[in-house]
């Protein structure tokens, strides 16, 4: 521990020296403000669905009242994590148990990003962080009114409310490490279905 603290000291001392001798402007008066907005002619809704399709996701647009039927018919046996009453059943399970039980998982997303199709989910959306990744089939729900234009808007919405863990998911897991051939289902979900909720 002492050795590590000594390294910390050495690193900070070297940074200080570099800042003096390297002619770095130590006191840039202010951090460069972001203030960037993306420009696009299309509506956010259209860009969102286009981006998701490009990323290999299936899309369904439904009225809220039709969603339960849709899920139970298309994904029988899916674990629907919108129902927090079942969360206790999964908390603290070993990864191998989760792998056996969670073939298909439904999660309610918090923000959709039009420019890239990414959907934000965090610790408040699932009982175990492994669930969105261990599932072979992942279904993400997102309210039409939760779609923002770009990552600037998305992070503006997240930064104050970041929980212990959060992730943007855009599409099924993928790899192109063998001759640049695109294959879905590298380690995470093999398929991603996104349900956009209207009304």
């Amino acid at each position: 521990m002492e050795a590590i603290n000594r390294s910390r000291q050495i690193i900070f001392e070297k940074i200080r020296r570099a800042t003096l001798t390297g002619g770095i402007n130590d006191g840039l008066s202010q951090q460069p403000l972001v203030g960037t907005k993306s420009e696009a002619n299309e509506t956010s809704y259209n860009r969102f669905t286009e981006s998701l399709k490009m990323a290999g996701a299936e899309i369904a647009v439904l009225n809220i009242c039709d969603i339960d039927t849709y899920i139970s018919e298309k994904f029988p046996g899916a674990i629907d994590l919108r129902n927090k009453n079942i969360w206790e059943d999964y908390k603290g399970l070993q990864p191998s148990e989760l792998a056996n039980r969670a073939e298909c998982v439904v999660i309610s997303g918090k923000i959709g990003v039009a420019e890239n199709g990414a959907i934000w989910v965090d610790d408040t959306c699932f009982p175990e962080r492994l669930l969105p990744f261990i599932a072979g089939k992942l279904i993400l729900l997102i309210g039409e009114d939760k779609i923002v234009s770009d990552m600037h808007e998305a992070y503006a919405a997240i930064s104050g409310t970041l929980s212990g863990y959060g992730v943007f998911i855009s599409g099924p897991s993928k790899t192109a490490d063998i001759e640049q051939s695109l294959v879905y289902g590298a380690h995470g979900a093999i398929s991603l279905d996104v349900v956009i909720m209207k009304g």
């Binding site: 981006s51 490009m54 990323a55 990003v113 420019e115 890239n116 199709g117 990414a118 990552m151 970041l162 929980s163 212990g164 863990y165 959060g166 992730v167 943007f168 998911i169 855009s170 599409g171 099924p172 897991s173 993928k174 995470g188």
Partner: peptide
């Protein structure tokens, strides 16, 4: 447009 997963560990 973005990587499939952008993960934030806090």
């Amino acid at each position: 447009p973005v990587t499939t997963y952008t993960s934030h560990y806090r």
